[in-house]
Amino acid sequence: MSILNISLREARVTVGRTLWLTGIPLGAAPSARETVIACEAVGLAGFRRLRDDFDLLTESVGRRLALRSDGADVVVDGTGVHAFFAVPGLLDVAALTVARHAHARVRVDGVTRPDLLAVLPHLAQDGLRVDVQFLSPESVEIVAERGAADASPVDAVATQGMPVDADLYWELYRLSDRALTPDSPLSRNHTGRSVFNENGEVIGELGEDWHGEVPASAK
């Protein structure tokens, strides 16, 4: 297996765009993206899951976590939400429960790929200590209290990069390119200072190299 060391920026671009293809709302994508990257960084095979679970992720979009609370004891029905999408909300639940009660015990059922919730301690905000216990293959308990969070694996990726399976990365990279918009003569007119003819061919650039009248099609 060939190994590639990718930067955090590259990971964010590739993972973020791939997630867009699942239909996830753009406003939910950044936190899901960080979850995937953290899973990859801590050895939970985040990238492979992103590729292999693409259909599951697509089906998961639109589902919502459902919350029932009784003081510091909270139950969350995952309703089939994929762990990549569930983690940000679960961390919020842990944080706001600790803010109210100094500690939290959150039982989570029905999340797709619950094993990925092992990433939770690594993504907790500073000031929140989180532990995860697996009660059964489908059920997880999150225990949280005030304290020092684990070091963020994303921070480590930012400074050191992240070794990944090169073939898998390039596969995801090509997949993520589908979030880009196909080129066309019309599209080429949507930016820059190039001047095009009616066939969409560059006939010059405004500025030093162009002194003629600009065709209406170029404006």
Partner: peptide, 16 residues
């Protein structure tokens, strides 16, 4: 209601 609870219902608003 807390913002955390709100975002469970509206995860698309998380970024903003």
């Amino acid at each position: 209601r807390t913002v955390g609870e709100y975002l469970l219902d509206y995860p698309e608003d998380r970024r903003m």
